[in-house]
């Protein structure tokens, strides 16, 4: 089997994988980073969103071998173990931005990428438009949108997010 090497959450990793191994399989099954989820497996639901070289992508539609040398960030890499949460994670916690939680890692990784592209002051319309590629089957979008608006602001301050105003 061919080998692949990349950086995941700041650490150099490598492994031998079948050619058809998807990035999400490499993350979950080889590296045991199970925070990245598989929802639809058809690049629609966004539960598998991670960052590759700083951009949000769907890890169910990328081949692990195609990421030789890439820099990958998953939900596990956002905060130090036992340290404070990333401001976007904290915003989801404070605003109850999840119900079952299955879509949450993808939502948070997409949210951080929205902030990168659109800045820290996000209106509801922008957030909803930009969440086109993430589906919450609990349909908890209202609080997800609130969480992202609060998290985006908190990322600017570099501190803990405030509860979004009702």
């Amino acid at each position: 089997m061919p080998s692949v090497s990349m950086t995941v959450n700041g650490k150099a990793v490598s492994g031998n994988v079948e050619e058809r191994t998807l990035l999400v399989q490499f993350l979950r099954e080889h590296l045991r980073l199970t925070g990245t989820h598989v929802g639809c497996d058809t690049s629609q639901c966004g539960a598998c969103v991670v960052h590759v070289d700083g951009k949000s992508v769907k890890s169910c539609t990328l081949l692990a071998l195609a990421l030789e040398g890439a820099n990958v960030l998953t939900i596990e890499g956002l905060a130090e173990p036992n340290g404070p949460l990333h401001p976007m994670q904290e915003a989801f916690r404070q605003n109850h931005g999840l119900q079952c939680g299955y879509c949450t890692p993808g939502m948070i990784m997409s949210a951080i990428d929205i902030v990168r592209r659109k800045g820290h002051e996000l209106d509801e319309r922008t957030i909803r438009e930009e969440l086109d590629g993430n589906i919450c089957r609990c349909t908890g979008y209202h609080n997800i949108v609130k969480s992202i608006a609060a998290g985006a602001k908190a990322m600017a301050q570099g501190g803990a997010p405030r509860q979004a105003a009702e």
């Binding site: 969103v49 951009k55 992508v57 769907k58 990328l62 929205i114 930009e130 590629g133």
Partner: peptide
């Protein structure tokens, strides 16, 4: 086209 993640690839 698609969504932000699809447009990145």
């Amino acid at each position: 086209i698609g969504d932000p993640q699809v447009r990145h690839m």
